[in-house]
Structures are given as structure tokens and as C-alpha cells.
Amino acid sequence: MSQIGHLTLKEIEEQPRVIQKTIENSQIFDEIAEKINKLKPELIVLTGSGSSFNAGFASLYMLNQVAGIPTWVVHSSEFPYIIEPILKEKRHLLISISQSGESPGTVAAAKFAESRNISSIAVTAHPESPLAKTCSMVLPLITGEELSVMATKTYMAQIAALIRLAITMGNFNSDIESSYLKELLNSLKNVPTEITKMMTPLKTTIKEMSPCYRFAKHAFILGSGPDYATAMEAALKLKEGARITAEAYSAPEFRHGPITLADEYTMILGIIPHSTSTRFNSVNSLLEVVKQRHTSILGITPEQDLPYEFLIKMPHLHEELSPLINIVPCQILVHDIAKNKGYDPDNPKLLTKVVSEE
């Protein structure tokens, strides 16, 4: 029993090094950003499946705000129906995300782009994979082999790489101050240190609270802005590893129907931004309403004094970088709940590392 989940936990602990290694080669990011600038795409489309889609969603905010190019993300399974009809040569750019570089739908999307002379970037940990060989550019993830079926460090590397690329692309955006880009880049480079500092206290705190969720069957994960993507990834991990039926919502959307399901039998995980954020009141006021339904609330937040049953204190970073920090306690929580239930998060039921059919 003590050995189940050891691969997942080990790979969670490796994430600071993975981020550092993935973003440290400035030359790769400079070269790709320069090529994108020469292309001058009117639209960037990100595509992927599962955690790779969620990583694309988390990066979407930075690409729109800092790179200044309209960007959207779509599941690779929906790519043929939503994106193929509108992709145009020299006007659009495709970024295909797959840790293995073998996901059929993601590879198919890249092949379609190449067949139409549309530039494409492979974001993958395997530079010799079918995806990498198909795309005209490769953004490598320096992760080492990920042995747990549940993606943790590869998810983190995907976000780090795409955010690093967005910051570099910002150098070509006249609307963005160079001092702001420098500040963002320094903050990104500091993320591994922040995760390392919080890792041991996090594991201790979550080990104490996780038994309270052993019998949880239903959960809602609420976030906003970039942390809506964090909520999506946390919900996926709760389903995969802990076998909890979990749904993610942008916090304001939760009021439009799903809030009626919040009761004393429901686990609520709220990702609450710093009080200086424009999103703070939206998320916090919702959780205060939900609390009146006697729902168990776990808050992940840089705020110290919020009146919820459980709080996990997080560092205060740029909002755009928060997905790199806030997913870590969610990963550890899933690992611990799974072990408490006797499930092995390294090998979730019916799952494989690479989905070979879609």
C-alpha cells in the first residue's frame, strides 16, 4: 500500500526542475518567436487532448494579452469540425500540444495544417515523435520520461513553455512595455523556487486534510481567468486518480444553474485569487453563498484569513502565472485521496499513457 502512487508523487516533486529546464534555452524561444513575427498570423489556434488541451487553455490568456495575437484553443477531436473550415495559408498558425507526440487527433490536426501550407508548432517531450516530424517548428519539453499515467510534470512543462514563448513574442508587440516583459520573465524564472519552497509544507497540510475527502463522490472546482484552466485540470485529475465525479466551472458561471447542486454532500474546491485581483470578489462572494448550503469548501489562495473549512496558502504571483502554482496542491490532493481510497494514481483504471484511438 505504501508504494502506490510513488511515481506520481515523485513526478510532482520533479516539476520545479522540469520548468527550469524547459524555459532556460532562450535561443529556441527567440528563434520561434522571430519566425512567428515574420509570419504575422491573424489567428493562432492551440489544439490538444486531455491535460494538453487544459495546458493550452491555461496559456491562452498570456498569448492573447502579451503576444497580442488573437488566440483560441480547441479539442483536437473537434478540430476537423470547428477549425479546418476556416484555416487559411499564411494567415493562421497552429500550435499542436501532445506530451507523447502521438495523440492521433493532435497529429491529424498538424497533418491537415501542413497539407494546407499552414505553419505549425509541435509542443512535445518527444522531438522524434510523429507530431514533431509533421510540424514545421518544435518547442521541446525537457521533462524526462513520465512514468505515471496521470500527467503532472508534462502538463506543467507545456504551460511553462507556452508562457515563455508568449513573453518572448511580446517583444514584437509595440503595445507591451519591455519592463513589463522583463518582470514577467523574472517571475516565471522564479516559479521553480516558489514551488520548491512550498512543497514540503504543502504535503504536510494536505496529508492532514485529505482523509476528510475519502468518501467524497462529487466535486465542483471553481476558478476564474487563467485559473479556470487550473480548475479544468484539477477536475480531470480528481476523475482520473481519485475516481470522484468532478466538474470545473468559471466561478461566475456556477451561479447559472449548477449552484443548485451544492450541498453538504458536495466537495467544493475554490481557487481564489489575491484580494487585489479584479476576480477576487466574484470568486469569494460565490463561495460565501455556497458556504451557506453547508458545503465543505477547500480554498487555494494567497489570502490568509478567509472563513472556509480548509485553506491552502499559496504564494502571490502574477495572475497569468498562477496556473503554474495553483495546480500543485490539486495534484498532491488527488494523490493523497487516491491512496486513502486504496487506488493507485500511477495507473488509473482503464487509462493508458497514450490514447491510440479517438
Rank of each mutant, 00 (worst) to 15 (best):
N37E: 12
S285F: 07
D346H: 04
I19R: 10
P16A: 08
E14L: 11
A110T: 08
K10G: 08
H256T: 12
G257S: 07
H256F: 06
Y180E: 15
T152K: 01
P140C: 00
R279Y: 06
E114K: 15
I167V: 06
I86R: 12
A262F: 00
K339R: 15
A58T: 04
L222Q: 03
A122E: 04
S322M: 07
V283P: 01
R91D: 15
K341T: 05
T301Q: 05
Q99L: 04
E233T: 00
I32N: 06
A67Y: 05
L324G: 09
P85A: 03
L87T: 00
M150W: 03
G105V: 02
M137N: 14
P85H: 01
F112A: 04
L236S: 03
Y180K: 15
E145Q: 09
L185F: 07
R293P: 10
T22L: 02
P307H: 08
I259L: 13
T22M: 03
K339I: 14
S296C: 10
Q304I: 15
A246L: 00
L333V: 05
H126E: 14
S178R: 13
R255M: 07
F254N: 08
V18Y: 03
M150H: 03
S179M: 10
L351Y: 13
A157V: 01
T200Q: 15
M267A: 10
V149R: 04
I332M: 03
L350T: 15
N190T: 09
V74E: 06
S98Q: 01
Q15A: 09
K133E: 14
K349S: 11
K153C: 11
H294D: 15
V74S: 00
T352K: 14
P273I: 00
R164V: 02
T295D: 00
R116M: 13
L321F: 04
A262G: 06
R293C: 13
F79A: 03
A67P: 10
D344W: 07
L286S: 04
L43R: 15
P104N: 04
A231H: 02
E253C: 12
T134Y: 08
I195F: 11
V334R: 06
L321R: 08
Q331I: 00
P329T: 09
S26Q: 14
L287V: 06
